[in-house]
Design a protein around this nucleic acid. Sequence first.
DNA 1: GTGAAAGCGCTAACAT
DNA 2: ATGTTAGCGCTTTCAC
Lengths: 325, 325
Amino acid sequence: MVTKQDVAERAGVSTATVGRVLSGKGYVSAEARARVEEALKALNYRRNNLAANLRKKKSNVIAVLVEDLLNPYYMHLAEAMVEHAKEKNCIVTLFAVKDRDVRRVLDDLLSNRVCGIVNLAMFTCDFSWYDIFLEEGIRLINCTATGPKVIVDYTQGMRQAMVSLQRAGRSRPAFLAGIESWLAPNDLRVRFFRENAEKYGMTYDPELVLCGSYPLVKAHHVGYDLCRELIRSGKPFDSLFCMTDMMALGALKALFDHGRSVPREVSVIGCDDLDFTGFFQPALTTIAVDKRAEAYAYVDLILDDDVNEQDTRIIGTHLVERSSI
Amino acid sequence: MVTKQDVAERAGVSTATVGRVLSGKGYVSAEARARVEEALKALNYRRNNLAANLRKKKSNVIAVLVEDLLNPYYMHLAEAMVEHAKEKNCIVTLFAVKDRDVRRVLDDLLSNRVCGIVNLAMFTCDFSWYDIFLEEGIRLINCTATGPKVIVDYTQGMRQAMVSLQRAGRSRPAFLAGIESWLAPNDLRVRFFRENAEKYGMTYDPELVLCGSYPLVKAHHVGYDLCRELIRSGKPFDSLFCMTDMMALGALKALFDHGRSVPREVSVIGCDDLDFTGFFQPALTTIAVDKRAEAYAYVDLILDDDVNEQDTRIIGTHLVERSSI
DNA sequence: GTGAAAGCGCTAACAT
DNA sequence: ATGTTAGCGCTTTCAC
């Protein structure tokens, strides 16, 4: 293990000087710098983050909380986050919050002195000891009601979706919300529809907003079950908004299993635009979220200096038309 | 920040004693233990892994190398790995090796003094400075030709698949291998077929083993492209082995787009048994890998004491029959 | 411009 | 059975 000390000795300077050339801060004579750089290369020095982090009382780890590593939307985000974090010399690690067992995860996070936490999980965690994190200088995103946040603005995506639906002559969409009913009413997509349905010649029927138990149950199963339930209920509907593409995958199957043709009899719209939504049968029309922007925003909110408590990043959406409408 | 010192003071003992009750090693009088435990709880002590790791010259981080966080098979493994690692007080972090740029990732790993590396990426990394890792006591799995390894044994899965195919009256399967051609011949599935085709009344035609450029291109696209190419080539085939379920997803779409009915005209078999393969159209029959066992094996090989260089864990497979054969 | 030195919080070897 | 102490490798303040 090559230490700073080793480098300093070889270069004939002190560790402080080595530190200066490494960090780029402070004065170093050109001559000393050259010698240090030579030594750095010759010895193949690599700094020990463990030590650096201990000294700085903070690690270079961004924790991302998800309830499920198999949710492809999260993985899209995670992928972009590790990429962006890397540019800033940080690594991201995923923590699975199974069964809402936040408590134990929180322990982990504290022990490992992560530098920030991004909560991707649906539920507001029990961050009641929230202050502990603040005391430690750990930034929290989407963890508590207050603090910096990133929100996805579905306005444009929804508007385009409604235009598209209208063009297809649809007027009674059902919503496969999937999440628990106390969360659903706040959903921006549902709300946008409720407030603008008339404008597009559609009707809003609260009975057609179906809730489920995601994330306890996998999204595609929720989609399937909800859609089947909807069909069996006999309530009329001519189109389907699914809160996620994976739910749409389930819905598509349910529709197929019950002999309802898509898009002839019913139009289906997903949300997320996963990398393989175009491979659904039929290819799914979906509201795409700018996932890269979302991911970058998370990382920036954790790492950047000029972030304040009210900081809010808005992420855009747009419709990707394929063949399910 | 509550330190061991704080706890020791409150309990009226030394830090060493606190250390002993925490680690469970060494003698502590019942009375002292009680006082320490009280203090631990009252102060809500949480050990600083940064410091512990520095001292032990090793972190509690298992690095997992993947080329793509969007590969659901990896995510199945990752999920089980974080779960198992957690039981052993470790965390796993995923490193994306884009464009085979292993070098920079290796830097990261060294800097962060991870305690072990599991290489899930297809290609054998350029671990030429391999020794550096060994010197640091970092365990490597699937990174080099030697060392402990876990291998997936496709024998049972393949045998069951061939029985199933035979029953369906198929005899000329094509293989969508997807990976580059210098890797494909070593594939255990292809080899098993080659060596046993006759037994099941099938013919092995090397022309029907199609290679591609995964992981540079997403698996479902590779599957689509390869399958289309196969169809256009006019070479006769009545069934399709796909190396992964995601490739099968692409193949299914290509087949559909070209009016070939599955399973009437051609049988399709995937491999992996992802959580949503049952939702493909039609539901995919696939060779399931015991992913949990695989994941646990990786973690154990990194963390357990009694692991030697030749250690090899075998992972089983079996066929999951759905409707694509 | 450069160096010396004081810890960060923990573990473990050694002493009592 | 319990306490003392010497670092792990780094950063950073302060003195020269």
